[in-house]
Each structure stands twice: as structure tokens, then as C-alpha cells.
Amino acid sequence: MIEYVVRRVLYGLLVIALVTVFVFLTLRLIPGDVVRLQLADAPGVTQEQLDARAAALGLDQPLVAQLLKFLGDAFTGDFGISFQSQQPVTSIIAERLPITLQLGLMALIISIALGVPLGLLAAYKQNSWLDQSLRVVSVAGLSIPNFWLGLLLVTYLAIWFAWSPPLVYRSPTEDLVSNLTQMALPALALGVSGMAAIARMLRSSLLEVMRSNFVRTVRAKGAPERTVLLTHAVRNSLVPVFSLIGVQVGGILGGTVILESIFAIPGMGSMIFQAVQMRDYPVVLGAVVVFGAVFVTVNLVVDLLYGVIDPRIRYA
């Protein structure tokens, strides 16, 4: 077990390093001259000034040296200074990551809170009209692009109900009500598709477990169908659902550029988008490293949770 975790952590670090190197090199391939972009304002800018700016940004060093410096600093949690805002990347991310995490968590809660009952019900009433209509509902949820849903919500709630979400993001500690009011709609728009995915996954994995030998045994002992489903089958069908949730967390962390923009939420998505567009190398790299780290961690946690849910799973 410990050996397994250690090996996974080492693999994780390797993956993060690979990601960083890949992104670092790709960034430099992308057209766009950072220094000229920064000094685009200065009409008579001299070569000395350009060189000085390049040196200030650390871009005068050989590529390998820049990469090694970044990797070394990143190891201590220092991702450098943003080219655009001149702020430490670590503090920019520290400001935005919790917002994205909160949005993701709320979306996840919504999708689990709605998806699990839906999936259970559909499995319990398999192939009934209820199953069929629940399926259409959940698939419809998966089929509506969430950015479109967000746009419709923000426009028509204002027109029909004279209501619009708060304009300024407040952290939960500053103003919990305002925070939740603002996050509710985007979380809903995001959560709807997660709900559909979870309901579907739960339904099919439940059905499979229900046909397994051990459930047959329980049933044979005379337990009522509902008990079988809720106590024995659910636990055993959670593995694929967890693995689904694990992957979804990864998706959420990348941020949701369009929804963030519609609901004025300063999260990771808009940050990454702007940073790539403006060739803000340190911010892109910092975001990628953090994303990679969280992704690796979440997947490890999910894999370990399998063992908790299903003791048959062993780690080799």
C-alpha cells in the first residue's frame, strides 16, 4: 500500500515535470514576440530598451537555463512574476484557484445531489416509462451547452424577473449570501451536465451489479428489492461513478472561460485564456503546474477511495 502510494506520487511528479517541459517548449513555439508586445507603446523604442526588457523578463538566458530555473523555482512554489500585471504568479493563482475550486465543488455537489437519485430511480424502475423519461431528462441536461444555458439565464432572468446576479465576486468569508447567489447559476449550468453523466453511469453500473452473483445471493435470502438496491448494490456500483467524478474534477479545474465571463467570476479559466493570448509565460506555466498537481492528486485519491468502497480492490 505505502509502496503503491510512493510509486504513484513519483509517477505523478514525473507527469507534472513532463507537462511543464512540454508546455514550456510549446509556448516558445507560439508566434508572438513578448518583448515587442510589451513595448508596443513606445514609438521610438531602441534595441537597448528591448534588450533591457528581455533581460528583465529573464528571456535573454538560453532556453535550457530558463527552463531549469523555472523548474527549480517551481519546486519551491515560486512561479515567477507575471509579464502582464507584474504580480507574483503564485499569489495570482492563490487568489483564483479557490474561486474555481468553489465553483467546481458546488457544481459537483449539484451533480451528485441530482444525479445519484436520478440514477437510482432509473435503475430501480429499469425500462419503465419513468426510466425512459428520466433518461431523456438527464441526456437533455448533457446536451445543452452550458455556456448557452448561462447566457439564457443571465439575460432572461433580468428581463422577466428583473433579477441579475451580483456583479462583484465576494469570498464566502466576506459575504456568504452574495457569494452563493453569484455562484449558484454558473454552478447549476455546470452541474446539470455532471448530473446527467453521473445518473447514466450509476444506472448502468447498478444494473450490472444487480445481476451479479452476490446480489443474487442476497436476493435469494429474501431481502426486499429496495433493500438490495440501496444497501448492497449501491456500494458496489460506486467505483465507476467515483472514477467519473475524479475525471470531472480535472475538467473543472481548467476553468470555464465562457461561464466565468458571463457571471463575472475571476477564476482560473479567464486567467489562463488571457495569459495564453498575451503570451504571459509565467502565468500559463504556473497554472499548468498547479493544474497538473491537482489532477494527479485527485486521481490518486480517487484510486485510493476505490479500496475503501470495494475492499476487493488491491493495490499492486
Binding site: 507527469v15 507534472i16 507537462v19 512540454f22 508546455v23 480535472g250 475538467g251 479545474l253 481548467g254 476553468g255 472561460v257 482560473m268 479559466g269 489562463i272 485564456f273 495564453v276 500559463v284 497554472a287 499548468v288 493544474f291 497538473g292 489532477f295 494527479v296
Partner: peptide
């Protein structure tokens, strides 16, 4: 590949 945010 999976550990890179899709948007990036």
C-alpha cells in the same frame, strides 16, 4: 496529455 488543461 490529460494533465494539461484542455483550454491550454
Amino acid at each position: 496529455l490529460m494533465a494539461i488543461p484542455g483550454i491550454v
